[in-house]
Amino acid sequence: MTDAPPPEHTPEPAPPFAMTGGRAALDGREVLRGVDLTVRAGDVVALLGPNGAGKSTLVRALLGLVPLTAGRTEIYGVPPARFRDWHRLAYVPQRLPAGGGVPATVREVVASGRIARRSRWRPASAADRAAVDRALEAVGLAGRARDSAHLLSGGQQQRVMIARALAGEPEALVMDEPNAGVDAERQHALAATVGALAAGGRTVLLVLHETGPLAPLITRTVHLDDGRVRREETPEMSA
């Protein structure tokens, strides 16, 4: 009853993500071993680390998709189980192929990213359609909108999932390895997209193998190893 006051009563708005002492296990193996991490509004954070360091588990735990065994995590100041403003977030998962046993067009998949902004009973509005158009433009797939998403290449499917996240016009975006299997030209295009988001004051949390063309945009890098944060750097420090 006492926690989660309305944002206007707090002097400083709660950060998009804040985890303290976060521990989590997958199939009985402890993957996160006490993580402290705060992602502030407007941050562009790169989460780096070797394979198996727990990067994907950490972002999933931040979103409440993996339960913590100890510690706590909050989304905009609210524990995930009680968080309701899901339209403020979007998540781009790592796994491919993009889902389901029935074909879906690129546009259908991208439009589903609006779901947190649309009530169950309301048909798509002009604003919904315009947001979907912009998202498709941003990833360069406007010309493929009517094609089956599952017939696209892996990199193109990745872009479909990024467009789905953009379509929801979130305040904070979480992307798990958005550059995996994507050519250099497209990595620069993603950097342009992230740059536009950052310029608009959005928060971006990226799981990356290497920063690549995104490097100039990143306000903080977090190195994860063996389920713990080893070090955090701001580019000014490392430069």
């Binding site: 979103l63 968080f83 899901w86 889902g99 259908e108 779901i115 947190a116 169950r120």
Partner: peptide, 22 residues
């Protein structure tokens, strides 16, 4: 008719559906 859009996202990706508050 009523739940179709939510069921579609569920079938596409259950975790994204959860992260959309479904």
């Amino acid at each position: 008719a009523v739940f179709g859009r939510e069921l579609f996202l569920l079938g596409q990706d259950e975790e994204v559906a959860r992260a959309s508050g479904l």
